[in-house]
Design a binder for these strands. Sequence first.
DNA 1: CCGAGTCGGTCTCAAAATGGAACCGAAAGG
DNA 2: CCTTTCGGTTCCATTTTGAGACCGACTCGG
Lengths: 152, 152
Amino acid sequence: MRYEEHADEFCSITRPLVVLGDRWTLLILKHSFAGVRRFNAFASSLGISRSRLQNRLDRLVEHGILVKQKADQGAHEEYRLTEKGLDIYPVLMALRDWGDTYMAPDGPPVHYRHHDCTGEAHVRLECDHCRQPMTARDVTPEVGPGLAVLGL
Amino acid sequence: MRYEEHADEFCSITRPLVVLGDRWTLLILKHSFAGVRRFNAFASSLGISRSRLQNRLDRLVEHGILVKQKADQGAHEEYRLTEKGLDIYPVLMALRDWGDTYMAPDGPPVHYRHHDCTGEAHVRLECDHCRQPMTARDVTPEVGPGLAVLGL
DNA sequence: CCGAGTCGGTCTCAAAATGGAACCGAAAGG
DNA sequence: CCTTTCGGTTCCATTTTGAGACCGACTCGG
């Protein structure tokens, strides 16, 4: 099996990974969330080669995660997050929580504050029924409708 | 700047990405969470080449995300998640929530149920002070102690 | 109009990462 | 013994990548 074939799997972890899970894509999106919009700005802040960057941006646009459009003023292009793109934020925040815990010996480099509040954003895995916090150990996988399509 | 230099950035999103953010690593971990432990089992279920797999497993062990040990019975080796590894679960669940929303037209392929409960696990970005749910738009970044080290 | 600068984007090529498959030694089981 | 299975290594052809030169379109000052 080659790598791209994982995109056909009936798994909602694998499918996003095939789109987002390479060295650069999530880094590009991180910069998008930080306000970067222009091709040259991505290129210089990331250190990715221009052709790679083009390739990745195209793919993100193709998947409706970014939109490419002319800036309001100035004739340059801009890459901006769509709603679908904005919804990737929890993934980055989950990475950050883990990074703050295990890879930030001097404490968090950046606080992600709730604006107009003293609190901070944190990802929490919880049960949508009983509202209890959960960990990997509390989860039991079970076949859902997206698999039933196969007639299993 | 080459890719690996991103590991030196003072950013708790970037640092984990340098370790976890390649094509295979998160897929390997997904299989770990699904109970896969043996070298050959990873190799055949993932379709990764054996040398790549070895390389990735070594790196995960090096970072304390997996441990390698002899199985209780049988003399074969096992790769198991450490606590640090188990804490990566929310990242996968965040990817899943996004995948279920945008890449699962027939509904979720798999339910991740709270065992002994009818509910399902979901990732929620919330403010640790006022407990309100948050989105990317509600967040204001602010310098934290891990950056103050630089004397800025 | 001219020429310099900036923009997003493409092309080329050497270097690095990857996939595939053969190969290895150790252990298990007959 | 012999065979199978295990984790793991080595090899090489193919693919992906990084680096930087290059391109045409546009802007702005003169």
